[in-house]
Amino acid sequence: MSAVVSLERVRKTYGEVTALDHVSLDFPRGRFVAVMGPSGSGKTTLLQCAAGLEPPDSGQVLIGGADVTRLSETKRTELRRKHIGFVFQSYNLLPTVSIEDNITLPLRLAGRRPDRAWLDELVGRMGLRERLRHRPAELSGGQQQRAAIVRALVARPDVVFADEPTGALDLRNAIRVLDVLRGLVDELGQTVVMVTHDPAAAARAHDTLVMADGKVIDTLAAPTADELAVRLAHLAAEPVA
């Protein structure tokens, strides 16, 4: 299995705090990977570095074989547009334009025409066909997050990074969004990396990375929610030096 995104000895600090401490990691194609860990363990920084949003202090980040740390901001943006999709906790939809315009925005910015069949497939899969002409505010949180997922996928990226995608949703909508993400991987062969602190959400992934103090301390294959909850509870209880 080839790696879509690789990190090699990546280090990132914010002042005195070391968010990533020489992390080396491969995200394999076609897998749904969850990243867990207590607050401040560096999971969001890991996602931002892996996605090329934040340049690391040292080390390499390879996206589609290219080292993003050596690229200019514009080149990095173009690389991200091509290879990476994003889903955020707060959806990040433009409030002033329709769902359809929101979904096609990345293509517009890249100067590409949308692939109608692909768009139609995604919209149908997410149950948004009736909602395309609406403004984001006219949709429920779950619908908005599914629209954000369509937007992340519309450019056929190699990998989708999701930062707490269910964090702002109720249980029913959270389950629906997780099902959608899992379906993308299982049925369409997508790669998804999701940061979450919810063991139930992480349990829907194939693998779970557990982070603490800027390091990946554990990789669990298909853990149950209970196993994850116990593992996290331990981390919270024993302060790591």
Binding site: T77, F86, L94, L105, L109, R151
Partner: peptide, 11 residues
């Protein structure tokens, strides 16, 4: 937000 959606600084 726009940057994260794929807008380059120049754009």
């Amino acid at each position: 937000g726009l940057r994260r959606t794929g807008a380059a600084p120049r754009q």
